[in-house]
Amino acid sequence: MARQSKPTMSRALQRRENIAGYLFMLPSLIFFLGFVVIPMVICIFISLTDANMNSSGQFVGLSNFIRLWTDSAFLEALKNTFVIVIVSVPTVCAFSLWVSSAIYRMKGPVLSAFRCIFYLPVVTGSVAVTVVWAWIYNNYYGVLNYIIGPKGLGLIEGRINWLGDPKYALGCIILILFTTSVGQPIVLYVSALGNVDTTLIEAAQVDGATDFQVFWKVKWPQMMPTTLYILVITTINSFQCFALIQLLTKGGQGTNTVMYHIYWTAFKLTEQAGHFGYANAMGVVLAIFIGILSAIQFKLAKEK
């Protein structure tokens, strides 16, 4: 009797868990499936067609993807995107690690003040940040030219047209992106540094380890999960850089990025309203790149 009733009990229990579990999941699943998963699936389908704004187009196989590798505008956008990622990800990580290790032992209010200030550009929002930086960079009225110009530090003569010159434009955008990217990593690193096991640090110090050794041998390994998370979110953020481009240069002066190019192809290319199929193919390629990079970062972090 007891032997028979046990499996049926657990089956009833399992059913109960199933029903309760899915009922609790249901509201969230409706939104998640409806507005994330289904669009993702449709995205792949559209990328295999020549759809535009008015028609759903015909199946064209992989020709959109093949066309991408001969499209010089796309390749340039891809190159710029990689430049942004390669420059900003390591600098954001290193900078936020340095700032966090300098501030995490400070007293409560001082620590929160610093943390808030470095988070400010994130909260201010990309539009407000972009509008004010456009003014700072302005050729004639901008404060940057004044500060480093003859009347300020005297580093340059005359004026530099920061956003209008292909030599500087991408660098200027990376700088703004940098200020809006370090906020979250600093918050995360401060909390990770605070959670490092202090007994290990003390043990290392008793054994005569220098501050530098304590950092690399004790703290750094313990912060690996945080570093990994920061690498992934910063990479995704850098790939997504859009508002800065759209509001400052409209992709000109050598600042076109894949994200902006997708938007432009889908909505702004005038010869034929909306190259949806082609733009979606770019989206799929971008997603694949991000997926590969995230996977590599996970793998590297695991090995360490």
Binding site: F32, I38, P39, M40, Q240, G283, I290
Partner: peptide, 21 residues
């Protein structure tokens, strides 16, 4: 695991299907 994978994707990639939807 579906949720974790979706988190790593840039939201903008699904923009066009979302617009049609």
């Amino acid at each position: 695991s579906l949720i974790v994978c979706a988190m790593a994707l840039p939201k903008q990639v699904i923009l066009i299907p979302l617009l049609k939807e």
